[in-house]
Design a binder for these strands. Structure first.
Lengths: 159, 159
DNA sequence: CACACTTGCTTGAAGCGTCAAGTATCCTGG
DNA sequence: CCAGGATACTTGACGCTTCAAGCAAGTGTG
């Protein structure tokens, strides 16, 4: 975004079509997945993501910072969410022994049970909405396209 | 999502990769686009979308319901947003003459000027984050992939 | 070893979106 | 012609996210 921004390069027809489709997916796919989780498990997608990441970590435990990154959220957002999950009995916090600044979040037995019972329905929703309508080649293309976009965002944010 | 949900079909390696990439895009692309608009124009992506749709409509005017659909948002959300845009002097409301239930939203001169000055930077951001990193073939694939996912969500919501 | 700085996380307030309820207008059948 | 229902939108309260500020524990530099 330089200083000389005279002639914007507008989107051509193909790009405009693709942008409308992508913009729609960006709004409606998260909404659909959130709705499924809310309806079937009373949990937001972000809350699910947090517990799912913990469930796959060694000792079902992670540092708050790492957990925030894995769940694609800010540390502040995670802190609020872990408060709620803690009140529901699904996660506990303990300070790290070797570095007092660090907080370790751990999935409880109840939290584990919650994920075990929630995951199949959620995976089924992801499969139904995303993968069933695509060919194998499209799945691989989607992977490549997604990675390219993410790499570009990463690059932009490191400046 | 039938009653006999014994063995969930988990995601295979390709699907898992693609899902991680897509989930990242779903979170981080909207965040990046919102950040650009907020920084350069003090407007959310949804607010921009609303004004952009009005700017392309005949008489820069649309029914609230149609506008909500075009901007991918609920009617309630739109109503709140139009209140804010009205306070900022970018949109006006008037009741429809032929049907008193309908509200018509119109982009003002100031609103038009705002969009004209904001659009180039936003298009540049969209181009930079999604289209520049992709090949022409990938753009067409993205279009097809997006349409398939949207069609599936549409079908799911009509049940 | 003390002072400033960084890192890691938490907190409270402000703003936005959603949901349920409410209002106003229009249509339809008896 | 009017009772009931449908349609179009608005509103207010509640919950969640963000942002800025704060606190506490670690690091390093003179």
């Amino acid at each position: 975004m330089g200083t000389a921004e005279q002639e914007p390069r507008w989107l051509d027809a193909d790009e405009m079509q693709a942008w409308l489709a992508l913009a729609g997916v960006l709004v409606r796919l998260p909404a659909a997945l959130d709705a499924q989780l809310q309806r079937d498990a009373g949990v937001s997608h972000f809350e699910y993501q947090v517990m799912a990441m913990l469930s796959e970590a060694p000792h079902r435990t992670l540092r708050m910072s790492d957990l925030a990154q894995l769940a694609n959220g800010s540390l502040s957002r995670l802190s609020h969410v872990v408060n709620r999950l803690q009140k529901r009995g699904w996660v506990t916090r303990q300070p790290c022994a070797s570095d007092g600044r660090i907080t370790l979040a751990t999935l409880t037995e109840d939290g584990w049970a919650k994920i075990v019972q929630t995951a199949p329905g959620h995976v089924e929703a992801v499969r139904g909405l995303v993968f069933d309508p695509l060919t194998g080649a499209q799945v691989r293309q989607l992977n490549e396209i997604g990675r390219r976009i993410l790499r570009t965002i990463d690059a932009e944010e490191r400046d």
